[in-house]
Design a protein around this nucleic acid. Structure first.
Length: 682
RNA sequence: GCGCCAGUGGCUCAGUGGAUAGAGCAACGGCCUUCUAAGCCGUAGGUCAGAGGUUCGAAUCCUCUCUGGCGUGCCA
């Protein structure tokens, strides 16, 4: 807001001086406070096109700006920068705005209500969540929060690969462990199986639940039963890890559900229609190299099974179909080779690939005692997300993950986080908040309050430290916008730290409450109220608690459990969102595998189906999709929608019209084999 | 080989084409009779991997080289 004030003034200058100007300049808060409150390179950037020396141009501008009253000073730096110092009352006015915004401070309309889907974590349901998943959880959740705060309408989604080869292997692994606990010598586990301890735990749990009767099943039934059991258990495990971490999702999408809606055939037929598939060596290929991928990819293997790519593509089509303006996938570092084929498919099917944005989080290395903790997926020797949280606490873990920009590898020093957690930067930020709360408690005790405070007394705030705090808070809204746009929540972590530093410095130097000077005390209290609110907002956006008090005497563990408790409580309060739906019945999940109802979505009201489809149809710009994907999209959408207890809207007219088209589409037979006809031998 | 990500004090990391490259940790030296010392102040530590280029100006943009991680499956 203050920057735009300066920009406006600069424009007036150029117009008055009749100079050419472009907006390729900036107004910024200089790193060095000696360079003023704000500075601009405007003269440097625009001197050339007016055939002037930067210094001369700057001099003329400064001459004009000096007449404005809201500047305390306007000056030229040696090389042509113009530095501004604003009058204090300008800051005092801004402080009032911040104070009055309260817990809404920093919110903006920047995103214009654009619908954004953020998919993150989406770990395979074959084991506990690991530290990379934890990073993704912290990242995705915070990105979601700041984007919503910046005016987007973001949703969080988790895709479950509960179908395919890896879950079959999971069942086999469980079967082996099961036989082992029954006393059989299974020898060494074959390579490729899941070897983690958790599989043994699953086996024990299964025996406790089912006894040994399962061993009398046919081989296929046995494995099916085990798969079902393992998926359910592991899903619960992952779910509870995320819950503990304070991360919720608006929707969970099951690959199995997608498949049951016929999306496989549909996707294959689309690709065939787009004339980009062919058969070779008994397999069906996607000619992705025609669309920018480095080589063609297999869609259907020679054994008749499809590759994971097909349902994944279908899943992405449902994202389009659900009418999002923008789609963000947060992927692990080992998936970047996968993107070209995905975008190739979008291109081939004429979907707007610019809507799809892939963000890669780089890997996480754990260090202990200066040495890298070796983890091996093969032997199952991994540190889980739960273990990490138990070790360092939710707040610290979230901060550590958020502190790094997504594209950077993250070295997480466990020992530091454990042993010296009291020096952890997250405590530094939280402590600033707690200190202010402490001052407020004291103020209450001394009956100092802001009820009869006259904001004119804010003129008493004139120390450099006080103005610095206001200046920092002024940056907050635009910081959130830039963090959203750049998809870099780590900027928020740094901001919070900086604001805390300014506060600690101020607190150290000045006594806030001083009975001899009641007006000054109130003005300072007013300022600190705004600072406290800003810190709390920032911390909450990162999923970190803003404690009212922190005492050194409290042991590390006490502080953490308290923080965790607070977290859990807050989750419970607003919670219920999806639990009610998908997970209020874990049974829902178990139903997945009974062959009847292959989805996660509690489909209790048949009439809803149509209505939902109506909605999604309306939302979809290009109904390229046919019934399977449309239906799946509808189911997901419905699931998402019903997460929020909203009164159902009645849209009869559109409903009729659309269900007609829907029927028409449905009656069109799917031709999965069409792809095979599409022979393009090389 | 090709592709993606990275390379900034001893360590972990910030850094919109701008001014003398910044924090934290570790090291060293100070500050508690005053609202929480989980704090503050100070000292030391740098050829921004290297070489060219673009321009008023480069850690930042372009090219090449080097180093590390990942990818390059009819795995997911």
């Amino acid at each position: 807001m203050l920057k735009s004030l300066i920009k406006k003034d600069l424009q007036e200058c150029w117009e008055a001086l009749e100079y050419e100007y472009s907006d390729n300049y900036y107004v910024e808060v200089p790193k060095n406070p000696e360079h003023g409150d704000f500075s601009t390179n405007a003269a440097l950037a625009n001197a050339k096109n007016n055939r002037l020396k930067p210094l001369d141009m700057a001099a003329q501008i400064v001459e004009l700006l000096k007449k404005k009253r809201h500047y305390k000073s306007v000056s030229i730096a040696g090389n042509g920068f113009i530095n501004f110092v604003l009058a204090n009352n300008r800051y005092h006015k801004t402080l009032i705005d911040i104070f009055e915004a309260g817990d809404k401070y920093g919110q903006s309309e920047y995103g214009e209500g654009k619908k954004v889907l953020i998919e993150f974590v989406s770990a395979n349901p074959t084991g506990p969540l690991n530290v990379v998943n934890a990073r993704a959880a912290a990242y995705g959740d915070t990105l979601y929060k700041i984007m919503n705060y910046a005016g987007f309408k973001a949703k969080r989604e988790y895709y479950i690969n509960d179908s395919g080869n890896q879950v079959d292997v999971l069942a086999e692994s469980l079967e082996l462990r099961y036989r082992e606990i029954l006393g059989e010598d299974i020898g060494e586990l074959p390579p490729g199986t899941y070897q983690g301890e958790y599989v043994k735990d699953l086996a024990l749990k299964l025996r406790a639940k089912e006894g040994t009767k399962i061993m009398h099943y046919s081989e296929a039934d046995k494995l099916e039963k085990m798969k079902e059991f393992a998926l359910e258990e592991i899903h619960e495990m992952q779910y509870s890890s995320l819950e503990k971490f304070g991360v919720e999702f608006d929707s969970w999408v099951s690959e199995k559900m997608l498949r049951s809606q016929g999306v496989i055939e549909e996707v294959l037929s689309y690709l065939a229609e787009a004339n980009c598939t062919y058969e070779s060596e008994e397999a069906v290929w996607f000619a992705s190299s025609k669309y920018g991928d480095e080589k063609d990819r297999v869609l259907m293997k020679s054994d008749g099974e499809i590759t994971y790519f097909v349902p994944d593509l279908a899943y992405h089509l449902t994202k389009y179909h659900r009418g999002f303006d923008h789609i963000i996938d947060v992927l692990g570092p080992d998936h970047h080779g996968y993107v070209p084929r995905l975008t190739a498919a979008m291109r081939a099917l004429q979907f707007d690939e610019t809507k799809l944005e892939i963000i890669f989080l780089q890997q996480v290395n754990l260090f202990e005692g200066g040495e890298k903790v070796k983890m091996s997926k093969r032997t199952g020797n991994i540190i889980t997300m739960d273990e990490l949280i138990d070790e360092v606490g939710v707040d610290a873990a979230r901060y550590f993950f958020l502190e790094k920009k997504p594209s950077a590898h993250l070295n997480f020093d466990l020992e530091l986080a454990k042993k010296e957690s009291s020096e952890n930067p997250v405590y530094y930020c939280q402590y600033a908040h707690a200190r202010i709360c402490s001052v407020m408690k004291r103020a209450k005790k001394e009956k100092v309050n802001l009820k009869d405070f006259n904001t004119k007394d804010l003129t008493r705030l004139k120390s450099a430290e006080e103005i610095a705090l206001i200046k920092k808070m002024v940056e907050f809204p635009e910081l959130l916008v830039s963090a959203s746009v750049a998809r870099e929540p780590h900027r928020l972590a740094f901001y919070t730290y900086d604001l805390a530093t300014l506060f600690h410095r101020y607190y150290q130097k000045y006594q806030v409450l001083n009975s001899a000077r009641p007006e000054l005390s109130k003005a300072r209290l007013y300022l600190l109220t705004a600072v406290k609110e800003t810190l709390a907002i920032a911390l909450n956006l990162m999923g970190i608690t803003a404690p009212e008090s922190m005492y050194k005497s409290a042991t590390k563990k006490k502080t953490e459990t308290a923080a965790q408790k607070a977290k859990v409580e807050s989750t419970e309060k607003k919670g219920s969102i999806y639990q009610k739906n998908d997970y209020d019945g874990k049974d829902d999940y178990s139903q997945i595998n009974d062959g009847k109802d292959d989805d996660l979505i509690d489909d209790d009201d048949e009439n809803d189906d149509d209505e939902v489809e109506v909605k999604t149809k309306k939302a979809a710009p290009k109904p390229k999709t046919k019934s399977g994907i449309a239906k799946a999209a509808g189911l997901i959408e419905k699931n998402t929608k019903t997460n929020k207890p909203e009164p159902k809207k009645d849209s009869k007219s559109t409903k009729k019209a659309d269900s007609k088209t829907d029927k028409k589409e449905k009656s069109e037979p799917k031709k999965p084999k069409a792809t095979k006809k599409e022979k393009k031998d090389k």
